[in-house]
Amino acid sequence: MSPSTRADGRDTRWAEHRRARRAELVEATMKAIRRHGAGVGMDQIAAQAGTSKTVIYRHFTDRAGLYRAVVAAVDDLILRDLGSALATPGAGDDPRALVAAAVDSYLMLVERDPEVYRFVVTRPLLDTPVSDDPVAGMTSRIADQVTAVLAARLRREGRDDRAAGTWAHSLIGLVRAAADHWVAQPGREPREVLARQVTDLAWGGLAGALRPPDRPDVPEESR
Score class of each variant (00 low, 15 high):
residue 82 L to T: 10
residue 84 S to M: 09
residue 84 S to G: 06
residue 84 S to T: 13
residue 84 S to R: 09
residue 85 A to S: 02
residue 86 L to E: 07
residue 86 L to S: 07
residue 87 A to V: 10
residue 88 T to K: 06
residue 88 T to A: 06
residue 91 A to G: 10
residue 92 G to I: 07
residue 94 D to I: 09
residue 95 P to C: 08
residue 95 P to N: 06
residue 95 P to M: 06
residue 97 A to W: 10
residue 98 L to N: 04
residue 99 V to W: 01
residue 100 A to M: 02
residue 101 A to R: 05
residue 101 A to W: 02
residue 101 A to G: 10
residue 101 A to V: 02
residue 102 A to N: 07
residue 103 V to Y: 12
residue 105 S to L: 03
residue 110 V to D: 04
residue 111 E to T: 09
residue 112 R to H: 09
residue 114 P to K: 00
residue 115 E to V: 04
residue 118 R to W: 09
residue 118 R to S: 13
residue 119 F to Y: 10
residue 119 F to K: 12
residue 120 V to P: 00
residue 120 V to R: 01
residue 121 V to N: 03
residue 123 R to Q: 13
residue 126 L to R: 04
residue 127 D to R: 15
residue 132 D to M: 01
residue 132 D to H: 02
residue 134 P to R: 00
residue 137 G to R: 04
residue 141 R to F: 08
residue 143 A to F: 03
residue 144 D to F: 14
residue 144 D to E: 15
residue 144 D to H: 15
residue 146 V to L: 13
residue 147 T to I: 07
residue 147 T to A: 07
residue 151 A to P: 03
residue 155 R to Y: 10
residue 155 R to E: 15
residue 156 R to E: 14
residue 156 R to F: 07
residue 158 G to L: 08
residue 159 R to L: 11
residue 160 D to I: 01
residue 162 R to A: 14
residue 165 G to M: 11
residue 165 G to F: 05
residue 165 G to A: 14
residue 166 T to P: 02
residue 166 T to L: 15
residue 167 W to Y: 14
residue 171 L to S: 11
